[in-house]
Design a protein around this nucleic acid. Structure first.
Lengths: 139, 139
DNA sequence: GTACTGTACTATTAAAAATAGTACAGATGA
DNA sequence: TCATCTGTACTATTTTTAATAGTACAGTAC
C-alpha cells in the first residue's frame, strides 16, 4: 500500500518556450515540488498518461522523469510509479553553492540589459521568491 | 574619425558550457557592457579577429553580433565595425517587465531544489548584483 | 589600389531533441 | 492465472538547431 492518489498537476507545454519539451516538464514538476503543490509521497502521472495529456511522446516524459529521479526529487518504485521523495541532499555544499551562483549569474546576465536599477531588480526578485513560498498545497 | 581603439575584451568559450557558442559570446559581451568593462563608443573586435581569437567560425561571431545589434547594445557602422551604443530602450515597459520576471522565474526554478532558505538565496543574489555593479571600467 | 569592416548568402556537417515502436520485469487487482 | 498498469531500456528515424566552410558585396580608410 502506498499513497496512490495521483495529485492534480497543472502543467502545460508552451511551443513558444525556448526550452526543450523535456526541460519544461522537469522545471514544471520541480517547481511544483518546490512550492509544495506536490507534497512528499504524492504520485506523479504515469509516463504514458502525462504524454497523452501533453500530446508529446512518452519517451520525452520518461526522459524528464529520469532527470527528476537523478535530481533526487522523486523516487521510482518498480511497477508502481514515481513518487515525490523525501527531501534529500545528494549534492555537496560546494556544488550547491556553485549552482546557486551560476543560476544567479545567468539571471543577471539576462536582466542587466533591461535598464532596471539594482533596487528594482532586487524588489522583483524578492517578490517573486515570496510569491512562490506563499503558494500553499492544493487542498 | 571615430573611437577606433578596440578595447581589450576578456572573453572565452567554455566547451563544458551548456550554452551554444554564439550565446556565450552574446552573454559575455552583454555583461561586459552592463558592468562597464565596455564603455559607450568602444569598438568591438572584428568578426574575423574575434573568431580567430576564440578559434570559432566567423559566422558564429557574426550571429552573436547580429543579436547584440538587435538588442540595441551595439551599433553597426558601415565598413567600420561595431561600437557600444548609447543606452537605448527599444523594448516596451511591458516587455521589459515580462523579461525580468521570466529571468527571475527561471533562476528560482533552478535554485529551489537546492534547499537554501529564502534569506540565503536573497543574500547570494544581492551580493552577486552588488559585485557586478562594483566592477569598474578597465583603466 | 589594398586592406580592412559588417552583412548576406548557400551548402554541409554535427549535435541535440523529439518521435515511433518494441520489449521486459515488477506490481496490482479481478 | 490473466489482464493491465508501472518505469525502464533499447533501436531507429525524423526534425531542429548550432556550427562550420566558403564566397561575395558594399562601405570605410589609408
Amino acid at each position: 500500500m502506498t499513497n496512490s492518489k495521483t495529485t492534480a498537476l497543472k502543467l502545460s507545454i508552451k511551443t513558444g518556450d525556448p526550452r526543450p519539451i523535456f526541460k519544461q516538464v522537469v522545471d514544471g514538476i520541480g517547481m511544483a515540488i518546490a512550492v509544495g503543490e506536490l507534497a512528499e509521497g504524492d504520485k506523479l502521472p504515469s509516463v504514458r498518461a502525462l504524454a497523452m495529456r501533453l500530446s508529446i511522446n512518452p519517451n520525452t516524459v520518461a526522459k524528464a522523469y529520469n532527470e527528476l529521479t537523478s535530481m533526487g526529487l522523486v523516487d521510482s518504485r518498480q511497477g508502481l510509479g514515481l513518487f515525490v521523495s523525501v527531501p534529500k541532499q545528494l549534492l555537496s555544499n560546494n556544488e550547491r553553492k556553485k549552482r546557486l551562483q551560476q543560476a544567479i549569474e545567468r539571471c543577471l546576465g539576462d536582466v542587466m540589459h533591461l535598464n532596471y536599477s539594482d533596487e528594482e531588480i532586487l524588489k522583483a526578485f524578492r517578490e517573486e521568491l515570496e510569491g512562490l513560498r506563499k503558494v500553499p498545497k492544493v487542498g
